[in-house]
């Protein structure tokens, strides 16, 4: 975490970074304490009682605390969200090709974002709304007599997704400045800010934690829906909750980062190979690995070429794919049911 914050085009040594971060944390704790025990906080401030001596410049402090730290945090949040949602979708749909985007979410978000770019509306809001509307539409198309068959859900998602993707392409084609949209589609975290971290962290942390509660139900449903019903699981309710929660965390992630592929597909598979199919372990493992992986990829993408940022989606695939192929080859058995 610290080292990834330290790495960047302006070189700031890790120990300085660590000191800045400690001071920042200390100051924010002080701020909160100040609200509860004003006298204690005032006393500390008056005596200049700080844990580390200030050996850095103000501009270094700004780079660390206002530019890099929110970006690293946002990368961690987005990676965690995509990977956890991907894991949930693979479990729910029992399909190894499933990722957070599989039922049209990314196309909905992309269309929302494209409209926002053309009409100069807030991109984050419209892409979020686009993704949420899409999942709602797909879910209702697939509903037959109060039940949502998984294969119908998958197919209607793909159908709606391709319709929306066509509309997005149309907008790119007629737009005067297609570059913005295309860059957004490639995914990246260069627009990171504390505001974005705040908004998305609430949704992602809550969404992911609630998803964890469905770990056991998803385990049982891996044995087949009928078996799960015999064991007393209300499968339609589980589907509804898991879909909505995955959709929310994915939409939150996509709205701040564009469409970053690969993380939500491959990280859960890698973790499944390493820790097994039990969602009680697989979920937290995917969350953690997704966060670490995207932070590393983002650090790489903004430092590998001087003064140019690669879209992080390129980096995730370039590093993740070979590693995944290696794991697939190493394993003799088929990966999935």
């Amino acid at each position: 975490m610290i080292s990834n914050t330290a790495i960047g085009s302006t070189s700031i040594s890790p120990d300085v970074t660590a000191k800045i971060l400690v001071t920042e944390i200390f100051e924010s704790i002080l701020e909160i304490t100040g609200k509860i025990f004003p006298s204690v906080a005032a006393n500390v401030q008056a005596n200049g009682y700080y844990p580390v001596e200030k050996t850095w410049t103000d501009s270094q402090e700004v780079i660390i605390s206002d530019i890099r730290l929110p970006r690293v945090l946002l990368a961690a949040l987005v990676g965690a969200a995509l990977s956890t949602a991907g894991c949930a979708m693979q479990g729910l749909l029992k399909n190894p090709m499933a990722d957070p985007y599989i039922i049209g979410m990314s196309s909905g978000a992309a269309l929302g974002a494209s409209i926002a770019f053309v009409l100069l509306l807030p991109v984050q809001l419209l892409s979020f709304v686009g993704a949420v509307i899409t999942i709602f539409v797909v879910y209702n198309i697939s509903k037959i007599g109060g039940k949502v068959p998984v294969d119908t859900l998958l197919l209607s998602g793909i159908a709606v997704g391709s319709l929306l993707a066509a509309l997005t392409s149309l907008i790119i084609f007629i737009s005067h400045s297609p570059h913005q949209i295309i860059f957004w589609l490639m995914g990246g975290l260069w627009t990171a800010s504390w505001d974005k971290v705040k908004i998305t962290s609430v949704m992602i942390i809550f969404g992911v934690l609630i998803l964890y509660r469905f770990a056991w139900s998803l385990n049982v449903m891996l044995l087949g829906e009928e078996q799960a019903q015999y064991l007393g699981i209300n499968i339609e309710q589980v589907k509804r909750y898991v879909l909505v929660l995955s959709a929310l965390v994915t939409a939150a992630a996509v709205s701040v980062s564009g469409i970053i592929g690969f993380v939500g597909l491959i990280i859960p598979h890698i973790m499944r190979i390493i820790v097994g199919p039990d969602h009680r372990i697989l979920f937290p493992a995917s969350t953690l690995m997704g966060a670490v992986f995207l932070v590393l990829c983002d650090t790489f993408s903004r430092t590998i070429i001087d003064s140019v940022e690669l879209p992080v989606g390129i980096v995730t695939a370039m590093f993740g794919a070979p590693f995944f192929i290696y794991l697939l080859r190493k394993r003799r058995q088929s990966l999935y049911a």
Partner: peptide, 14 residues
């Protein structure tokens, strides 16, 4: 799916 036998039996306690 690579659950242990004990995990599968534990699913009966669902």
């Amino acid at each position: 799916f690579e659950f242990t036998v004990e995990d599968i039996v534990l699913m009966g306690r669902t």
